[in-house]
């Protein structure tokens, strides 16, 4: 599904990422962990096209993504969420999800303006599927509220629903549990497993909450200061002395 090879990113003199390699198979639930500033979000920004790497390649579903802008990558079947939730605050919950469907639209703008049949059919289907998606993530009741006024937990769910609307095969989640309490984290875990199954997703998750990643992911990559310090199944990674040092400091 996703092959990242020898990725390198520099911000001026700062080494953000060096020789980063990761292969995510179809249907995989992969985790990316590491202390603050380790370069996790940088990996996401490169994969989703917001950042050009200094070196290395990203291959997604057999296609080299070199130079492709973010929207083109989404069209190929990749969607991401952001660490600090980024919703369209003035649009309603329903509209937020419907914008997600827009990238699959085939009707041209003039067909939309003149309300020609093809646009009408598409819009109707978008609406139907948006309601289904809202039902699935449990936001049906707040569909007409402005997204900016939702409580925090709902905003997280909405951002995921909006990403799902683009019809992704690969979902990149940047700290989905940030700011959630233990109970909500548990619910999120169930929710993620559920959507992964329902939409047959491959997931790459950045997370600080170790309990969540240990439970959710089948494979972990640990970053520290832009370097990959460990890779493998959660149980193995947990035992790794380098990982313990990075998280807890030297003994």
């Amino acid at each position: 599904m996703l092959e990242i090879a020898h990725l390198g990113v520099r911000f001026g003199g700062l080494l953000a990422l060096e020789d980063f390699c990761l292969t995510v198979p179809v249907g995989g639930l992969y985790g990316l962990i590491g202390p603050n500033g380790a370069g996790k979000t940088t990996v996401f920004n490169v994969v989703s096209g917001f950042l050009q790497p200094a070196s290395g390649t990203v291959i997604f579903r057999g296609q080299n993504l070199q130079g492709l802008p973010p929207h083109a990558r989404t069209a190929l079947g990749m969607a991401r969420t952001f660490q600090n939730i980024r919703l369209f605050g003035d649009l309603t919950v329903l509209e937020n999800v419907m914008v997600g469907f827009h990238c699959r639209s085939r009707a041209a703008w003039w067909e939309a303006v003149l309300r020609l049949p093809r646009y009408g059919r598409e819009e109707k289907r978008r609406q139907l599927r948006a309601w289904e998606l809202l039902e699935e993530v449990g936001l049906r009741e707040v569909a007409w509220e402005p997204a900016g006024q939702l409580p925090y937990g709902h905003q997280r769910r909405l951002e995921i629903a909006r990403a799902l609307a683009t019809g992704p095969r690969l979902l990149l989640l940047d700290e989905p549990a940030a700011g959630l309490n233990p109970q909500e984290t548990l619910e999120l875990l169930q929710f993620l497993k559920q959507i992964q199954e329902h939409h047959q997703l491959t997931m790459l998750v950045i997370e600080h909450n170790l309990r969540l990643v240990m439970e959710l992911c089948e494979h972990l990559t640990v970053l520290d200061h832009g370097l990959t310090i460990a890779q493998g199944p959660p149980a193995e990674v947990r035992q790794d002395p380098q990982v313990i040092r990075a998280y807890l400091g030297k003994q």
């Binding site: 989404t74 952001f82 369209f88 605050g89 649009l91 914008v99 990403a163």
Partner: peptide, 22 residues
């Protein structure tokens, strides 16, 4: 229309709009 919604999405948060394929 769908295009207008995408335009308002750009107004509200351009990076997020790009990320969902606009």
């Amino acid at each position: 229309s769908s295009y207008g919604r995408a335009m308002m999405a750009i107004r509200d948060d351009e990076a997020a709009a790009q990320a969902i394929g606009v």
